[in-house]
Amino acid sequence: MDSPAVIAHRGYAGVAPENTIAAAETAAAHDETTMLEIDVQPAACGTPVVIHDERLEGTDTRDGRPLTDTTGLVWETPLGEIQTARVLGTDETVPTLAQLLEAIPETVGVNVELKNPGTTDLRFGESLSADDRDDRREVWTPFVERVIDDCATFDGELLFSSFCEGALAALREIAPRYAAAALVWDDLEAGLEIARRYDCEAIHPPRNAISGTPLADTEYAGFGADEPKIDILEEAHAEGRTVNVWTATNWRQFEALESAGVDGIVADYPELGTYSSAR
């Protein structure tokens, strides 16, 4: 069995301040790292910045810490203020997408998650009607154009993913040459519909959505502790799609997903596959 690709979640958020240049450099320094996963949103001027939550202080604390020492909605905050915001009590700051891409070697791929175009109305995780698709594509288009512009000089592998159908619709219209992935939240059928609609090269389900694993009996990412009704691994592979699963936080989860035959594992820590019996 081939080992799954290891995708560093926010730059291995378990060992470095997430979505920072330090995290990206840490992830790239590990030989096992196939790809770096990051999140992008616009600053007030539209410049793509690398940050996960819609608020600078975070919508949830990380072990009691705010995400940064600055507050406010990301897309309402001037770029200069965002760039000086320190992440998780460290001296690391929020980078622009362009700055982060310049800091990593092109031997490491980048999974750019299109997180938010600058709105609280995201239509998150939904499979949309035709009219709604057009509307949401228009909402996302200006931001996706800025992201694509910033990625133009990066010669490494790029994969764009999103929980929002509008983002994928905009990507396919603006830059169909790039690989796309539908991120799945609480509805496997919707995720597959979106992946099929945009002929996505990949689909990214949560770790408990993989049938036949111990993880399927746990609550996570909007799914209850029940065996999935759809074998998303079988369905996606039958359609020629890569299945990258998020997020492994320990070696036992990694082992279960590797044994199931997933193609990639988004991980919070490096070297989680060290003790896997599937190797």
Rank of each mutant, 00 (worst) to 15 (best):
R197E: 08
A182D: 10
A195S: 11
R197S: 10
A190G: 10
A180S: 13
A195T: 01
L183T: 13
I203T: 09
A195D: 03
D199T: 00
E189S: 15
D187Y: 03
R177M: 14
E193C: 10
A181Q: 09
D186A: 14
E193Q: 14
R177H: 15
P206A: 05
E201H: 12
A175H: 08
P205V: 03
A179G: 15
H204P: 04
A181W: 06
V184T: 10
W185F: 14
L188V: 12
A175S: 13
L192D: 12
C200V: 01
A190M: 06
E193M: 10
Y178L: 13
C200Y: 00
A182P: 09
A190V: 04
P205E: 04
I203N: 08
R196V: 03
Y198F: 08
A190T: 04
L183A: 12
G191D: 10
L188H: 10
A195R: 01
Y198T: 03
L192S: 09
A190L: 05
A175V: 04
L188I: 13
A202I: 03
R197Q: 08
Y198C: 01
R196P: 00
C200T: 05
A190E: 03
I194Y: 04
I194R: 13
W185I: 00
A202F: 09
P176E: 03
G191L: 11
I194T: 13
A182T: 14
P205S: 07
A179Q: 15
L192Y: 03
Y198I: 01
D186Y: 08
A202M: 07
H204M: 10
I194P: 08
E201R: 10
A180N: 04
C200H: 02
A202Y: 07
H204A: 13
A202G: 06
V184I: 14
A182Q: 15
D199R: 04
E201W: 04
H204C: 14
A175C: 12
